[in-house]
């Protein structure tokens, strides 16, 4: 059972951060779907509800997603359906169900760098930046490499570069976690290949990306992705199977991108 001793609803992000760092065993509350499964005792829980972070908006250059926006918001937002071939809605719309997606939040999901994450894989294939209160604004890829620190993720920015993108995942039961997921995107001749749920966190397959960018054929590039990345086994699949599926999913995603002119 999750235990929360104190609960605060800061009026400003500074204050939220202050509580987070000053009090021992404090935690930011997202949608709580993950938090509730643990038996953690949180001394001070920080609720961001008063910080107006529940939004998705679009300007000329960016689509900006607040940390408290839900997966359902991503799924239904017109701009996200329209841009990048709708990869972001596609990446989340299989997760459990509508009422679940109305609960879970973007900030928690990205900040936690879950290995299985569908959203992170899709975001990594786009020109995505994250904003952290302390860490500042940085490319998502950079954030993914950094070690986890006490911080608050406030916003996600996706540059409207006009990338063409495709998202693929393989699941056994359709509401299960992915066995593997992949996203591929292309901006002019610049390709990005991302593979996640390996089952460790999503990464950019640099060789494969480079190969595609250099005009090599899709199957070779997909093979390269399977070769350059590491895979492990868990309940949902063995390392060997994941490696084989990496090639298939990357190939499919790249083919789809190639076909979108």
């Amino acid at each position: 059972m999750l235990k929360i001793l104190d609960l605060v609803q800061p009026e400003s992000i500074d204050e939220a951060y202050k509580v987070l760092t000053e009090s021992h065993k404090s935690a930011v509350l997202g949608g709580c779907a993950f938090l509730r499964m643990g038996s953690k005792t949180i001394n001070t829980a920080i609720d961001l509800s008063k910080l107006d972070l529940n939004y998705i908006r679009e300007d000329n250059d960016y689509i900006e997603i607040g940390a408290m926006a839900t997966f359902r918001d991503i799924e239904t937002h017109p701009a996200l359906k329209e841009h990048f071939n709708g990869v972001l809605p596609k990446s989340v719309n299989n997760i459990i169900g509508v009422q679940f997606r109305n609960v879970v939040t973007v900030g928690a999901s990205v900040f936690s760098k879950y290995g299985f994450s569908d959203l992170i894989t899709a975001l990594l294939a786009l020109d995505t930046e994250v904003e952290l209160y302390k860490g500042g604004r940085m490319p998502l890829a950079q954030f993914m490499e950094e070690s986890l620190q006490k911080d608050i993720l406030t916003k996600v920015f996706i540059k409207k570069t006009g990338r063409i993108a495709s998202y693929q995942s393989l699941r056994n039961s359709s509401s299960d976690f992915p066995i593997l997921n992949a996203a591929v995107s292309k901006l002019d001749n610049n390709w990005l290949v991302v593979v996640g749920a390996r089952p460790t966190r999503a990464v950019i397959a640099t060789n494969a990306s480079e190969k595609l960018s250099n005009g090599e054929d899709i199957s070779n590039s997909a093979k390269a992705a399977a070769e350059e990345l590491s895979f492990a086994g868990n309940l949902r699949g063995s390392a060997e199977y994941r490696k084989a599926m990496c090639e298939v999913l990357v190939k499919r995603a790249a083919t789809e991108v190639m076909q979108c002119r």
Binding site: I4, L7, L29, G31, C32, A33, R36, M37, D47, R72, I96, G97, V98, Q99, F100, N102, V103, S175
Partner: peptide
């Protein structure tokens, strides 16, 4: 106890939401 079944669905401001995973406050 893992937000998976939807039995606890209620509406919050009209949106179907898992009441088992939404903190009461």
């Amino acid at each position: 106890d893992t937000s998976c079944c939807g039995l606890c669905t209620v509406w919050i401001d009209g949106k179907p939401t898992l009441s088992c995973s939404t903190l009461a406050f």
